[in-house]
């Protein structure tokens, strides 16, 4: 079930229908938001946590939402910040070095029953894991989500030129990585 942004905001704006509005917000965007997060954090349990936190943060800050962007763009921004923060926290845990978490994500790609890719699809994902997080994010948004550079620019607050450079740089690295074996 999907609702228009206006309808969702109307429902949330009224205290007696607020909960219905929150539910409508989740129902309308959960699959796309989860999809973006999952491509970044790879492991379903982590994606589940980050998705829940994204929506809870959205509920708390909905009064700050300005109608000059769509609710999806706004949620997308929260989701990518939450994903990047999540990965950053994993890096900072001294008892779990960064390599270990990336190794965990890589192993998950090969062994989880919640990943169904063939050899080349898994190889691409593993190559993507070697990119810096922000470069991986730009690649996912452009390649998998089919977002335009202008849309990505609005979401990330980065210039179109920098995004193009980042994407092409990522593609070159992936090509080298995939062809090296």
């Amino acid at each position: 079930m999907t609702y228009s942004d206006q309808k969702i905001l109307e429902l949330i704006g009224n205290p007696s229908t607020r909960e219905t509005g929150y539910r409508a917000l989740v129902l309308s965007y959960q699959k796309r938001i989860y999809g973006i997060i999952r491509k970044m954090v790879i492991i379903h349990e982590d994606a589940d946590d980050v998705t829940q936190n994204t929506f809870i943060k959205a509920f708390r800050n909905i009064q700050k939402f300005q109608s000059n962007s769509s609710l999806f763009t706004w949620l997308y921004r929260i989701a990518i910040n939450e994903s990047l923060n999540f990965l950053e926290k994993k890096k900072r845990r001294f008892f779990l070095p960064i390599e270990d978490h990336y190794e965990a994500m890589e192993n998950y790609l090969s062994s989880s029953h919640l990943v169904s890719g063939d050899y080349i699809e898994i190889k691409l994902q593993k190559a993507l894991l070697k990119l810096p997080d922000k470069q991986r994010l730009v690649f996912n948004m452009r390649y998998f989500e089919d977002l335009s550079y202008e849309e990505i620019s609005k979401i990330t607050g980065t210039s179109v030129g920098a995004l193009k450079a980042s994407y092409h740089h990522a593609v070159k690295k992936i090509e080298v990585d995939v062809q090296s074996e």
Binding site: V26, Q30, L114, I120, F144
Partner: peptide, 18 residues
């Protein structure tokens, strides 16, 4: 490279999530 979504969720996940 392929664009297909290879990531899946447990059954009924999106029904429970809200």
């Amino acid at each position: 490279p392929p664009k297909r979504n290879i990531f899946h969720t447990p059954e009924g996940y999106f029904e429970r999530l809200p």
